[in-house]
Design a protein around this nucleic acid. Structure first.
Length: 460
DNA sequence: GCATGATCATGC
DNA sequence: GCATGATCATGC
């Protein structure tokens, strides 16, 4: 044994030797064929570097010191910056056990409160033995985050206790998510208060939270502005209600009046005007990110309401790539991720002077049944792309498509989202009618009437 | 007036 | 140069 498994310092210094190396560098050509798939790197690491058999017991991986070993991929984004490639998946949620547990003594806390994190750079089509290990971090959940994670855990527990384990969603919570886990078509389990089978889920740290951990490890976390200098308030109140309370003094004020009140000269024509205004009201400096929002992967959406409280526009999402659509399963899809996340909506409405007036703010995430409707839009679109069955009719400059429109179901639809009609992505199957190998970029949109009925008008 | 296709503006 | 959030334009 090259480290003392009863001594935390020994474990960490042994782990630190991984930095800048690959497993092949350190362990040589091992019997790598014994493992495969997504968890391969982690299994190789445990067996050949730390010399213990990969397991799925309830105890932490180093039980004597209560440390859990986790490896997780990084990816490069613009400017060669390294960020988390995905959420960090922790232990499976046992629906039967969680309902009778207390957070402080829960199996979640026992296993996951102290993590030894191994970050490696993921590269497609490369053997897991050759991933470059970039960072090793020792992470204990800090008290101010633990308060929020506890609220998240309680929320997951109460859903299960209500017999709604099958309706759990990652968007329900802030830092700690309940993510699906287990293969194509999903892995289903029973739950204590309902006959309905629920997808197997695991606790996970949101991608945004993991990026925060990375920033702390690298001492580069000064781009954040915090909502709470003192998180004790969260012992009595949810984040949602604290944030909503901060908007109360500004409700029914016009944008102009709000700017006067916060004594700021933001340019109302700037693209990020509403995002900046939101930060000002929340007391976060304009150039900083809202720490709690970033860590929780919360997307801010501002909506302008017209007559009848109907949003002036549908809400767009990023354009999707046609080939990616075919590659992905629903549970791992970009589209599901985008619709499942938590949103913070800021609603403005035009008054008689044609000024925008702040009417309401709301945290929201899509209910399970509606996410199923988005899935139907997704499968229909995927089917059409697969068949090359996109263009219905060419009418002068306009082309009508078979893509699901606003009438397909009440939730979401597909529309163009491009610079112009010549701004395209390649098609995996050439279009039957036009023979074209590429097509104008399209994206998913949330129907404006759905936004009114399901979000703006719905009670807290 | 609404649904749907097309495009703009900004920032990285 | 492109991704993204936002908005315009047209025809039924």
């Amino acid at each position: 044994m090259q480290y003392n498994s009863a001594d935390i310092k020994s474990i960490i210094s042994y782990a630190k030797k991984l930095e800048g190396k690959t497993l092949r560098n350190l362990c040589g050509d091992v019997l790598e064929n014994s493992y495969s798939g997504k968890g391969k790197f982690g299994q190789l690491l445990e067996k050949f570097y730390f010399n213990y058999e990969p397991n799925s017991v309830a105890d932490a991986d180093f039980p004597e010191v209560g440390v859990e070993l986790k490896s997780t991929p990084l990816k490069k984004i613009k400017g060669d910056k390294l960020v988390a490639k995905e959420r960090l998946v922790l232990s499976i949620i046992n629906y039967f056990e969680i309902v009778s547990q207390d957070f402080d003594t829960s199996s979640f806390i026992k296993k996951n409160s102290h993590l030894l994190l191994i970050f490696y750079l993921f590269e497609k089509d490369i053997n897991a033995l050759d991933y470059l290990i970039k960072m090793v971090g020792d992470w204990k959940i800090p008290p101010q985050d633990l308060i929020i994670i506890k609220q998240d855990w309680e929320r997951i527990k109460s859903q299960v206790a209500k017999g709604k384990a099958h309706e759990l969603s990652e968007g329900d919570t802030f830092y700690l998510g309940a993510c699906t886990k287990g293969g194509k078509g999903g892995n289903y389990r029973g739950q204590p208060e309902s006959e309905i089978l629920a997808k197997q889920r695991a606790f996970s740290l949101k991608q945004g939270y993991l990026n925060h951990i990375i920033a702390v490890i690298n001492n580069s976390n000064d781009d954040y502005g915090r909502l709470f200098t003192n998180t004790n308030i969260l012992k009595e109140q949810s984040i949602e209600s604290v944030v909503s309370d901060r908007f109360i003094p500004y409700l029914n004020m016009s944008v102009f009046q709000i700017l006067q009140k916060v004594e700021n000269k933001l340019n109302p024509n700037a693209k990020n005007f509403y995002a900046s205004l939101t930060k000002l009201i929340l007391g976060v400096q304009d150039e900083k990110e809202i720490e709690e929002f970033t860590k929780a992967n919360i997307a801010i959406k501002t909506v302008r309401l017209g007559d009848g409280d109907i949003p002036k526009e549908n809400i767009s999402f990023p354009a999707f790539k046609y080939d990616e659509l075919l590659d992905e399963d629903w549970d791992e899809s970009t589209i599901k991720e985008q619709f499942e996340q938590k949103f913070f909506f800021v609603f403005f409405k035009y008054n008689h002077q044609n000024e925008l007036v702040l009417k309401r703010v709301k945290f929201w995430n899509m209910p399970y049944n509606d996410l199923e409707s988005v899935k139907m839009v997704w499968s229909k679109t995927k089917e059409l792309v697969e068949q090359g069955n996109i263009v219905k009719e060419v009418k002068g400059k306009k082309r009508l498509t078979y893509f699901p429109s606003t009438k397909f179901n009440g939730v979401a639809h597909i529309r163009p989202h491009a610079q112009n009609s010549k701004d395209t992505y390649p098609l995996p199957t050439a279009d039957k009618l036009t023979g074209s190998q590429e097509y104008t970029k399209h994206s998913f949109w949330l129907n404006n009437k759905y936004v009114r009925n399901a979000i703006y008008l719905s009670p807290e």
